[in-house]
Design a protein around this nucleic acid. Structure first.
Lengths: 231, 231
DNA sequence: CTCGCAATAATTGTCGACATTTTTTATATT
DNA sequence: AATATAAAAAATGTCGACAATTATTGCGAG
């Protein structure tokens, strides 16, 4: 299910280009294809057993997802997630998702709010069962995606889900130790749902903003710590 | 100069695909290619005297700029700017550019602030000379682009200048009567520059937010008015 | 031994033809 | 006359080859 939903987000449209887009996307997010590495068209085409045509289209698609940077006459490279870029990504997410929360408080359907309840209940159960201090990444994404879709703003939704979140998933996947959600996140999720239920736009906005700023700060702290330990 | 700067933003990289991208972008923004119309690959390739290869790449580029929507197996269509979409675009711009203003108050160089001064001085001169209530569109874009670049956040800059602003230019160009900046905008520009000079992040953010919300409200009012007059 | 240049290799950009899918048109049936 | 079906036309997707550009290698001069 999770896989199918993922696939539908982009690619896997029955076309070869779509298939390649999905394959490369997953390979980049997982780190199987390294950050900063060059995507050689001839080499990739051979590896994937496809011609260069659809491969080039897939590369353009990935460029639109901000997962690769394409320089004319020089080829495509996987994006490099420097600490600066990660912080910029979170600043952008803060601006967009806090606005999405404000809109969601007004536009979300009650069945969508129910969906959020189911998600955080599952998160609560998971943490009780596993006496585990971390929310599973999939569940965390489900929560935020539901919130974002609830805003009913296609432009914000596209900016977040088709670009920002791919980069966030990539970062989290490759830096689990730095980016996992703490038990505190669950409490914040509950506060967010409360604000949405109350249809309190201001509260929803400020609560989501704080949730993201905290995640950002946590990441910055852990990364600086990691850097210190390297020296 | 303005043309050259425009060209450098995307496309015109010496490759045919880049040329086509620029050409089509301008044609779409100006309305020469109508909203919602289909971009037939075979027809366009003949008209522009290019093969379908680079044309397809250009279409993918334009998709990344949100100017066209591509449906696999069915082709590409120019985006349709409904009133709903326009309002969503302005909501997104509000979230991103107000954040950009906050960051710019911290990160902008003094020479960039000088640049803003030159721009608004020219705007003031223009309005005195022409006893004209409107700021030229080019000058307004120059102001906002300088502000956005001053934030020193590549993710926000990309989201705004590579996507949102293309749509805004397209809308403004095709609906001048609805979207021109009033004399009040100049006053707001001055307030924004003041906040940036003071390095007051909060004031910069709130001032830009209000500037955009007002533009949005003005557009909504004028569009509803235009609709009423049609009936 | 280092630097610069030229020949060579590899890569990206472009093209035209073919395959597959979608849309249109024409025909036939109710 | 309207609908459904099938053939035909057109459009998008894919492929392999060629062109143009960039990167690499090897050679020679300083």
């Amino acid at each position: 299910m999770s896989r199918d939903t993922e696939q539908l987000l982009k690619g896997s449209t029955g076309t070869i280009a779509g298939e390649i887009t999905s394959t490369l996307r997953d390979a980049i997010i997982s780190g199987e294809i390294e950050q900063g590495s060059k995507l050689s068209e001839t080499k990739l085409a051979k590896d994937l057993n496809v011609s260069r045509g659809p491969l080039r289209e897939a590369i353009r698609n990935l460029e639109g997802m901000s997962l690769i940077v394409h320089v004319p006459q020089q080829g495509a490279r996987v994006v490099t997630l420097t600490m600066e870029l990660i912080l910029e990504i979170y600043e952008t997410r803060e601006a967009l998702e806090s606005k999405a929360a404000s809109l969601a408080a007004r536009n979300m359907t009650s069945s969508e709010i129910d969906e959020l309840h189911r998600i955080i209940d599952a998160q609560g159960k998971h943490m009780r069962d596993n006496s585990n201090a971390y929310i599973p990444a999939e569940s965390d994404y489900a929560f935020h995606e539901t919130l974002i879709r609830g805003a009913k703003n296609k432009v914000i939704e596209s900016a977040l889900l088709r670009q920002i979140y791919h980069l966030i998933k990539m970062f989290r996947y490759q830096n689990e130790f730095v980016s996992t959600s703490t038990s505190n996140s669950l409490l914040e999720h509950r506060q967010i749902v409360y604000a949405l239920e109350q249809r309190d736009q201001e509260l929803a906005e400020v609560t989501v903003r704080r949730h993201i700023v905290r995640a950002r700060d946590r990441i910055e702290r852990r990364m600086r710590q990691a850097i210190r330990q390297e020296n």
